[in-house]
Amino acid sequence: MEALISFFSHYMLYILMGVTILTAVGVVYSKNAVHSVVALLLTMILVAGIYLMLDAEFIAVVQLLVYAGGIIVLFVFMLLLVALHKDEALRLFNTYTMISLGLIAFLVIVLAVVFFGTPFGPVPETVTHIVKGGSTEAVAGALYSTYILPFEIASVLLLVVMVGAIVLTKERVKL
């Protein structure tokens, strides 16, 4: 039993990362767009799990709230509206699939070599700034003091987006 638990706590991150890659592939290669969005939802939840393993539980919860609670609902909503009309059977992938895949595989391999060649130093066992087991207060403190200007800019961005989305989708607007 204890061996099992230590095994899981040690390899949990690897398991999460492996499953995340599978679901991410599902997002791109599903034939049905709704299957894609289900895969995207699972990916987001798993990424939240990865954040949790990296001592960032506030970010993990925000990830769930923003992505699972907001963004993907928008996607599903849009998909349901689009799926009401039968789209004619189009090819799913374009002609450059093989070339793109080759280029991206090359990019990933080159960067992986770079990553393995860079000495990042050992992983710190204890973290002080990122308060272990409760980063909420620490993040909030930094957000509202050091990073107050980007925070305000972000709120202006959201306001602009709100206005923009309404203007774009309002009935009278002719594109």
């Binding site: 709704v34 289900v38 939802l41 939840i45 539980e57 506030f58 919860v61 925000v62 769930l64 709230l65 699972a68 609670g69 907001g70 993907i72 609902v73 599903v76 909503f77 349901l80 799926a83 087991g133 409760g134 909420t136």
Partner: peptide
């Protein structure tokens, strides 16, 4: 959890997909 309330809000926001996907499928 020390972020218990946020956790509840986050998890319960996932519950909507059952309704959405059930209705679509």
């Amino acid at each position: 959890l020390n972020i218990g309330l946020l956790y509840i809000l986050a998890i319960s926001s996932v519950g909507i997909y059952g309704i959405l996907l059930g209705g679509w499928s």
